[in-house]
Design a protein around this nucleic acid. Structure first.
Lengths: 192, 192
DNA sequence: TTAAAACGGTGATCTATGTCCTCGTTTTTA
DNA sequence: TAAAAACGAGGACATAGATCACCGTTTTAA
């Protein structure tokens, strides 16, 4: 699992062999089976997690019991609940494996010390957060301005591949539309 | 204008007198009248802006001409289009003064050099971005999971004061509901 | 200081989307 | 490998919220 991470980070940030050793030193590897939770709502998110293999989702449950997906996380991406991780507060989110997955994790303490020792890692992380914020803003804009069909079209364009990897109701949940509406939109598009 | 900024930043980050001098050195002050644009869609956002007095909004226009408000920015807060600012790409957003305002701005080049010279400023900025991301995520969650009334209630709770400072249709635009619906929700709540 | 524009409210519709249901197929799991 | 669960599709109906239209009041700007 760390091997995949090493390959990934080397191509994302120009890190040295020593940097890699540092990162390896306090990395925690974990294997997840389908439906395993990496984070449970109510717990504090203690780790920053790199997904070396598999597929996760981050979702939140409303009072009426319905689930709303905030994020899909395929291999070669990161996941965490930043708010809980930074502030040590209980998380609202669940992070669940949708496929059997392999991840590499670091505690905040360890990762912050990596930031101090590896400035390129900090710069890379800053960039990630920026692009994350830009994408989240875009998602707000779409959520408040687009029709269900426009939301779906943008999803397909922005995240091709995901549609073939998760059940339709999860895409609907991510978009904030009902499963049935999404099913109808798709069918209407096939015909046209 | 810089005086207000100085007061603000001193209480947010522990900066020295010399730090203040550095920040003052390349700060650009600007006065805006109501309806003036700080940023026009299509232009590159060249500045990071602190609002020392007044009130701005950031909005985006859809193809059909409708405006969607992404952010309200009262005095003692910051505004910029991070994506355009960081990447030098044309912005999708307009930033407009809703009241006559006074702002202090820095170019990216200058602000980045301040980051190098004033680590506390960088740390403060990192925190801001984190909380910004957390708030934006929360807004996504609400947008995809809540009813119009729940959206309004959360807005009032999260941003008390703004409701008395902007016309109702702007709150509606921020929430992604129609002016009429919001008006009815408010009236129904007064009665209950 | 006055004409024009913006604003908030409300009634009468309309409609996009949600909800509830059933059914056949595929996938999962014991 | 068989029973159970999850899934996608689609029909019938319900409804939250949009749209359109109009009005009186307040604010803005020439």
């Amino acid at each position: 699992m760390f091997a995949e991470f090493e390959r990934f980070i080397r191509e994302q940030a120009s890190v040295t062999d020593e940097d890699i050793q540092l990162m390896r030193a306090n990395a925690v590897e974990r294997t997840l089976r389908r439906k395993d939770l990496l984070l449970q709502a109510g717990d504090v998110c203690r780790y920053k997690t790199f997904i070396s293999k598999g597929f996760l989702r981050t979702y939140r449950t409303t009072d009426d019991g319905s689930e709303h997906i905030m994020q899909f996380s395929p291999e070669n991406s990161w996941t965490t609940d930043g708010e809980s991780y930074e502030n040590g507060t209980p998380s609202f989110y669940n992070i669940e494996a949708l496929e059997s997955s392999e991840v590499v994790m670091w505690t905040r303490k360890d990762f912050n010390s990596l930031f101090e020792q590896i400035p390129q890692l900090k710069a890379y992380s800053d960039k990630l957060i920026f692009s994350n914020l830009a994408r989240t803003r875009q998602r707000v804009f779409t959520a408040i301005s687009a029709t269900a069909e426009e939301k779906y079209d943008e999803f397909i364009q922005l995240y091709p591949g995901i549609i073939n990897r998760v059940p339709l109701h999860m895409v609907a949940s991510f978009l904030g539309v009902s499963r049935e509406t999404l099913s109808r939109i798709r069918h209407a598009q096939v015909r046209s």
